[in-house]
């Protein structure tokens, strides 16, 4: 579904994303993890056309989409959400979601019906007439999800939809994301909440200093010394192992 080959994004002397390659299989829930500042959001931006990559290729559903404008990429079926939520603040939840739904229909009633269906899917049907500005953090995260879903994507890129949520809100949103995948949408998510990554993702890529340093099933990665060192510093894996033996 998604193939990224040798993608780099360079800001001045900094290689924010450094020759990253990865694949996301159709129908999967794939994860992207890594320490703060590793370049996860930049990688998402370079994939979805918000940042022009300096090197490398992005192929989506067999088509080379490197450097295409975000709206064209969205029209092809790949849509992203924002880590820092970007609601249309003065519009109602319904109007927010309708903006996404309008991608495939010029008809107001059809877009409204689609918005209601999506709102039910993500569990915010009761909030449809609220103004987006008045939503809680959890509500805004769901709204990001709902708007993106309304565009009928094939691939959904979620940038930390669980950051800032409390444990019970996380428990509520995990089945929502699984339901989205079960409805036929491939999901690729950046996430810091490891509990969510463990329970959702089948395959995870680890990004550190802009490079993909590991890939595999989340349980395997959690024990991988390379990954542990990326998060906890050089020698941490050894010290942890030593502590376990003692």
């Amino acid at each position: 579904m998604l193939e990224v080959e040798g993608l780099s994004k360079i800001y001045g002397g900094l290689r924010a994303v450094d020759r990253a390659s990865l694949r996301v299989a159709e129908g999967a829930i794939a994860g992207l993890i890594g320490p703060n500042g590793a370049g996860k959001t930049t990688l998402f931006a370079a994939i979805t056309g918000f940042a022009l990559p300096d090197e490398g290729r992005v192929r989506f559903a067999g088509v080379d989409i490197t450097g295409r404008a975000p709206h064209r990429i969205c029209a092809q079926g790949m849509v992203r959400t924002f880590q820092i939520t970007q609601p249309f603040a003065q519009l109602s939840v319904r109007e927010n979601i309708m903006v996404g739904a309008y991608l495939h229909t010029p008809d107001r009633d059809e877009a409204a019906a689609r918005a209601e269906a999506v709102a039910r899917q993500v569990g915010m049907a009761a909030l449809l007439d609220r103004t987006a500005a008045g939503l809680t953090v959890a509500g805004r995260k769901r709204l990001e999800l709902a708007r993106a879903l309304a565009t009928r994507p094939k691939l959904l890129l979620l940038d930390e939809v669980m950051a800032g949520l409390n444990p019970s809100e996380i428990d509520e949103i995990i089945p929502v994301i699984r339901g989205i995948r079960d409805a036929g949408v491939t999901v690729f998510l950046i996430e810091h909440v490891m509990r969510a990554v463990m329970s959702l993702a089948e395959n995870v890529h680890v990004l550190s200093y802009g490079k993909i340093i590991a890939e595999g099933a989340p349980r395997v990665l959690a024990a991988d010394p390379v990954v542990i060192e990326a998060y906890l510093g050089h020698g941490a894996a050894q010290r942890l192992a030593g502590a376990a033996h003692a």
Binding site: T48, F82, P87, V99
Partner: peptide, 11 residues
């Protein structure tokens, strides 16, 4: 309301 979000949603 938000131009980046609008672009992300295919506008």
């Amino acid at each position: 309301e938000n131009e980046d979000a609008a672009r992300a949603l295919g506008i």
